[in-house]
Design a protein around this nucleic acid. Sequence first.
DNA 1: CAGTAAGATGTAACCGCTTTCATTTCGATG
DNA 2: CATCGAAATGAAAGCGGTTACATCTTACTG
Lengths: 344, 344
Amino acid sequence: MATIYEVSKLVGVSVATVSRVINGSSRVSEKTREKVLTAMRTLNYRPNSIAQSLASNRSNSVGILVPQVHGPVFASMLSEAEEELRNAGKFTIFATGLSDEVKEQEAIRFLVSRNCDALIMHVDALTDEFIKEQMDDALPFLIMNRVVPGLEDKCISLDNERGGFEATRTLLEMGHRRIAYISGPLAWVDASARLEGHRRALAAYGQEFDERLLVESNFKEVGGSEAMSKLLRRGRRRPFSAVVCANDEMAAGAMDAIRARGLSIPEDISIVGFDNAPLSRYLYPKLTTVNYPIAEMGRMAARWVLRNVYKDSEAEIRHVFRPTLVPRGSAITAEGSRDDAPGN
Amino acid sequence: MATIYEVSKLVGVSVATVSRVINGSSRVSEKTREKVLTAMRTLNYRPNSIAQSLASNRSNSVGILVPQVHGPVFASMLSEAEEELRNAGKFTIFATGLSDEVKEQEAIRFLVSRNCDALIMHVDALTDEFIKEQMDDALPFLIMNRVVPGLEDKCISLDNERGGFEATRTLLEMGHRRIAYISGPLAWVDASARLEGHRRALAAYGQEFDERLLVESNFKEVGGSEAMSKLLRRGRRRPFSAVVCANDEMAAGAMDAIRARGLSIPEDISIVGFDNAPLSRYLYPKLTTVNYPIAEMGRMAARWVLRNVYKDSEAEIRHVFRPTLVPRGSAITAEGSRDDAPGN
DNA sequence: CAGTAAGATGTAACCGCTTTCATTTCGATG
DNA sequence: CATCGAAATGAAAGCGGTTACATCTTACTG
């Protein structure tokens, strides 16, 4: 690979001048610029970005830490962010943290040791304290899908409470009154916020929240299935005509359980999910769910970095995103449903 | 961040010695090694990997190029490879090529400019010629899911022909005789190899291949749906009792189309997919499909790099992976099905 | 046309580490 | 105790850029 020296020699200027045309950092006469560009082309020269990084103390790379890559949520976030960054000439280095505290810390250290200019982190296991204390000095960072008190301007998140509200409100507007809720682990902020929204919606429509219609589960398919079985077993007469699941995976499991019981969706039970994951379109019937604009959020994260770290963008940064309902086939009006039909 | 100089000063040795203990590259007396390690700890020193890269002409990072991140296939590949590499202390930089020739070339240049030590590429749009001519000298690289003639030892792929064979064989063993086939774009090697396997299976069971039972589609859900509609329209009496789809997404679409016609799965039509994508488990009924061991393949790619580039592994490299059938609910024996019932 | 400031270019130090080669240390040997 | 070779260590030259500062050109100005 050609170096900057060879270019400078070929043109007959100093390396500094070549460097200047590479970076546009300072004025170079049009004539020499042209000559340099030509030389670069004929030598097929490409700056060694490692050397650039070392000299400029800028790696031009941003680290992204996600719990895992599979899972539609992370994949979209990752790819959108990467594209935005690459368009700006930045590299994306990624690592997975597996929702494990030690691994997340390790991954951070790993990315830091690569001199990332910034970190975009989706961390589940790290405590607020760790983030506030350990991270603050190291390098610019952004937290995804989470609000760390005191660090709001470094967080990009979804208004989960509103999402929960919307999900339940939709069912209420459809005439449903007894609405079950399958929650994620309530220790997680997003899960509890979604439930909070659910409760607010019930209250807004004058419905009392019924503890017996709530099951706390684990955001997983099997968990959703078990939760639904539990709900269906709680009494001969099914005391609800609709259910909200705090994510689509659990909704998928719940649908299995409902069918296993001989009931149909949506005639016997309407169901609303959360996330609008790809799988929601493959379920049968297609799942009515709450859209999680994760792609946009990934893009926004990239813009935040571009703007705040590289001063490369004027983009307005939005920190809290708004979930919206995606109506599909799994929820219908209460009139159209066979409410209170005996369970299997 | 502390530098190697501060460490060397603190211990009272030269930077060369510190470097030696960092890399274990040459002998250092046990006593000094201990002292150096202690000093590194007290200064919380971490080698600047950028500087290491520049000096050693090794970036310790490998580039991975995938068409896109979403899509279960790429996500799994990516994350498995990343994990394997990270465990070996290597960084993973990724970029997406979007199955576009220009973008793929750009992405390669992008990764090369970052001095990746190796490239793992899943490229759709690049021609064999480009790969053979342009890439060969640049840096070590590995091609995923594709066999470039003459470069077999740099390719990791699935035995698609065998997969197609297995899918069809399964249905044949179940007693099906008239088996439709919805293919991917036959210009793509994997699509045509799968079809080839299908034909071989038919031949092996003494069945004639019927051109009218083949539709070429595009690997997408909507395409699968359209293809199935077309097949169902080809005559009053449905001339097939089962269908093989060259990937799961098309199978999902096909299932929709079958149901739209008022037929049921698997009673009226058995269906087998290909890939074992996550969605296949969410379909109803759950899809019988051919497993694509993509995670393993990603891991293997990482091992190839570790072994061939970093001389860091003794792992045996497998270049061609074997697909296996995953029986689920969407295919049943022909006896149990209502073969040749009139279409809707 | 001398004077001057802005513009263009060059010089060289430096970024933090690796690595070659030279030098020193050390234990074993005769 | 001098000798010798192996082991341990150090000195210094890069790796390929960036950038502060110095210097040289210009184009104006009066």
